[in-house]
Amino acid sequence: MFYPNSPQTSPQLTQIPYGQQYAMMQRQIQQPYHPFATTEPQARLYPYHYQGPIQQEQGGFITQQSTAASPQYVQMRVTPVDQSIMSGYPNQTANGSSSSSFNYNIHPQQQQQQQQQQQQLRHHAMPVGSVPLQDDRYRKQLIVNYLAPDVTSTDLHELFSRFGELDGARIIYDKQTNMSKGYGFVYFCHAEDAKEAVERMSGYEFHGKWLKVGYSTNPLNIVPSNSSPYVHAGSRGAAG
């Protein structure tokens, strides 16, 4: 039997160049792979992502010199942007860049009308829970959420009447099932009393439920100042 490094198959040491006398086997001759043993700084910083320098080929596509990437890492192929796409944008300079302001050559009167329309939209648009300043009635009506099913309009009136005089209180019921929808409205005579009720009743436990109280901004629920107070009856038909 002959071994790869046996004296019968191995040459004389004098015939082997210096430095390879003890590297006779194939696994010894093959050098191990060192990912950080390279002179390129990109490979030292990113050993798993770097795959060699990027070269520009004919046709405008950018390719990489090395083989496919590892399945664990996804390499994105980048193509140059066609400058003709950006030619339609206004205020574009000769080098292809555009300024931040756009001039669509709008007539001054049209621009003024658009600004007025935007101001009107901001004036009428009102986020949930906010209180408008032009109508004091919005500051007097509250919406009470997360009410228990057994709470009546009379219970709601008695709960909030300790903060001040009320114009009314009612629970909203479903017309088909005649069941409470879980929320109601309270109408105060003074805005200061309503503000105190919002601050003190939010998070209050009532009939096993934690109440959420806020201003009601729905104009359909506003009680006119010259109208008669609501009837605080315990029956659902009268309260709904």
Rank of each mutant, 00 (worst) to 15 (best):
Y89A: 07
Y230A: 09
T67H: 04
Q12F: 15
V78D: 13
V128H: 09
S6T: 10
I143V: 00
Q65Y: 13
Q118H: 13
H107F: 07
K140G: 01
L45N: 10
Q75F: 12
K195F: 09
A194M: 09
P90S: 14
V231G: 10
N226P: 12
A169V: 04
S228R: 14
T67E: 12
A43F: 08
Q119P: 09
A148I: 06
Y18F: 00
N221I: 04
A23M: 01
S202N: 05
E196A: 02
I54L: 06
E165L: 09
Q114T: 03
G203C: 04
N105Q: 12
L121V: 05
Q83D: 03
D136V: 06
I143H: 07
P32H: 00
M86V: 08
R122C: 00
F188K: 01
I222T: 10
S101I: 12
S66V: 11
Y3L: 10
P7D: 04
N105K: 11
A238L: 07
P32N: 11
Q28Y: 15
P108I: 06
S130V: 09
S130G: 14
R77K: 00
P41L: 02
I143A: 07
S66A: 08
A68V: 04
P149W: 09
I222F: 06
P71C: 08
Q114A: 09
S228T: 04
T79F: 15
Y104Q: 00
S227Q: 04
I172K: 05
A68F: 01
R170Y: 10
T39S: 04
Q112A: 06
K209I: 12
R122H: 15
Y50S: 03
Q141D: 00
A169C: 14
P35H: 06
Y33L: 07
Y89T: 03
Q15A: 13
V78R: 06
R77Q: 13
F61I: 07
S161T: 13
Y46A: 08
Y50P: 09
S101G: 13
R137V: 01
E199A: 05
N91A: 04
Q114R: 05
F160R: 07
E165G: 09
W210N: 08
V198K: 12
Q113M: 10
M201Q: 00
S100N: 13
A94Y: 02
A43H: 01
S97C: 09
D193P: 09
V213N: 09
S130K: 08
T39G: 02
Q56G: 03
K181L: 08
N95C: 11
I143L: 04
Q8P: 07
Q72A: 04
V223D: 02
H207E: 00
S225M: 14
Q64C: 10
Q58Y: 00
Q65H: 09
F102I: 02
F163A: 02
S66R: 05
F61T: 06
Q51A: 09
F163I: 03
T38C: 14
I143F: 01
E165K: 07
M24G: 09
Q51K: 06
Y3A: 06
H157E: 00
S130N: 09
Q65A: 05
S97M: 00
Q115E: 12
S70A: 10
Q134P: 09
Y18A: 10
D150F: 11
A43S: 05
H232G: 12
T39D: 04
P41Q: 06
L13W: 15
A239Q: 01
Q176G: 06
N5P: 04
E205P: 12
T63M: 14
N218D: 01
P108G: 02
R236G: 07
R77L: 14
M25L: 12
Q110R: 04
G129Q: 12
G60C: 06
Q65G: 03
L166C: 01
F2A: 07
E205H: 09
R200H: 03
A233S: 02
F206K: 15
R162W: 02
P71A: 11
Y173M: 06
I222W: 13
Y204K: 05
M24H: 06
V231E: 09
S225W: 09
M126S: 07
G60A: 04
P53W: 15
N178R: 03
Q112W: 13
I16T: 02
G203F: 01
Y48A: 03
V78F: 12
D193C: 02
Q83F: 12
A125Q: 07
Y138S: 13
Y138I: 03
D150R: 08
Q118D: 05
H107E: 09
Y22N: 04
R170H: 05
I106M: 06
T152R: 10
E165V: 10
S130F: 14
V186W: 10
A238T: 14
N105H: 10
S84K: 09
H157M: 15
Q112D: 03
F160K: 02
Q110C: 00
N95S: 12
Q113Y: 11
